[in-house]
Design a protein around this nucleic acid. Structure first.
Lengths: 209, 209
DNA sequence: CTGCCTAGAGAAAGTGACTGTCTCAATGGA
DNA sequence: TCCATTGAGACAGTCACTTTCTCTAGGCAG
């Protein structure tokens, strides 16, 4: 598994993301070229494209994407998907508070920024927002079969509900962003998704684990 | 109002869309350049960009976008938004059956194609799909305030529900596409959105017009 | 009907994101 | 230790999209 190749890959991705974020914060997203980012991260432009695909991909690359179908099934398998989502958001926020990698302490007096720093660009930069939507769309297509597999909903309904979940989460995240990010995101998700709970409440009594 | 300038604009947009669709069907979306489209439509490339913004915009340009806030309010104002959506879809399908402009009869033996021909690209061409998602996202942001204005939901919930509506519609449309487009889209929307009806059923008894 | 005046269509050059292809070094296995 | 393969870098090319300028022709006085 984790050979040197894989290590290089992970380290490079992390470095590129950090340096790119620094540059974006400094000059604005549009004013930064891939070549600058590559130079700042000391890799070739080709590598940036190989690792992230697009400029926006640097910001929206998400561990959610590379989650295996099995892990996703575990994640969504038990009970109300909204509760699963809430658990994931809370876990993410808790991990973010503890943050971040200890090994970058040897690189100078750089302030530790919140891992949510990049989220700003999700809403501030239109092209990034589009990329986020594309990601959510892919996520919806991945979880729809899992929702359909429970047998409670038709395939069409499973697709609709999957999109309602992922883009509903996005809407809650936007409200969190617009409010300045003071309260926890999970609060927004919990409140925002409440109207959707009826989907499972109504027909889930047979399986209320 | 409809001066010659506006007439030129509408006619040019229509011509560009038709010619572009012809070229896409013939050579594939990626293999067609904006210059080719402009040449085929006998306008300048600049005009294509001025009228549609992007290459994908030629396919996803939607009257929904330029709908005024007032018209949107009329459209969504009365009762269950899902019913409003269904009404709109049914009206669109009925109009599509009657189809299309009589004045293009003088242009040669070209087959009348369904106005849904372009929908194929929504799902077959990734970059177009992304553009559609971006459009739906914008639509969601436009209708969220209208949903919030009813006062039944908080702002966050209104945003979530708005996204659930527009991307739920998209999911239903995809199922329709995957099934080959035989049955009416409205059927898919009606079936797919049924789990979401609880949102209004539960608290809408005061206003069941 | 005539003449200004401005919106807007076209022309053209530039930018940079992204895509191939090739080479070569380094890796991991025999 | 040697070999096959993976993958990083270099490089050239394409084309979507932007910006700027010019100049025509529509819109609107008078």
């Amino acid at each position: 598994m984790s050979g040197l190749r894989e290590r290089w890959r992970l380290k490079a991705m992390h470095t590129i993301q950090e340096r790119a974020l620094d540059l974006f914060d400094e000059k604005g997203f549009a004013a930064v070229t891939i070549e600058e980012i590559a130079a700042a991260a000391e890799v070739s432009p080709s590598s940036v494209y190989r690792l992230f695909g697009t400029k926006e991909g640097i910001l929206v690359a998400d561990e959610f994407d590379r989650m295996s179908p099995e892990a996703l099934k575990d994640f969504l398998g038990s009970g109300d998907p909204i509760d699963s989502l809430l658990r994931a958001v809370r876990a993410y926020e808790a991990a973010a508070k503890g943050s971040s990698e200890p090994e970058d302490a040897g690189e100078g007096p750089r302030f530790k920024k919140s891992p949510w720093r990049r989220v700003r660009y999700f809403f501030a930069e239109p092209s990034v927002r589009v990329a986020v939507c594309a990601n959510l769309d892919r996520a919806g297509r991945r979880i729809a079969p899992l929702i359909a597999a429970t047998g409670e909903l038709t395939e069409t309904q499973a697709r609709v509900v999957a999109n309602a979940l992922v883009f509903g989460y996005f809407a809650a995240l936007e409200q969190w962003y617009l409010d300045g990010g003071s309260r926890p995101i999970a609060d927004y998700v919990e409140e925002g998704m409440r109207p959707l709970r009826g989907i499972w409440r109504s027909s889930d009594q047979e399986d209320s684990a």
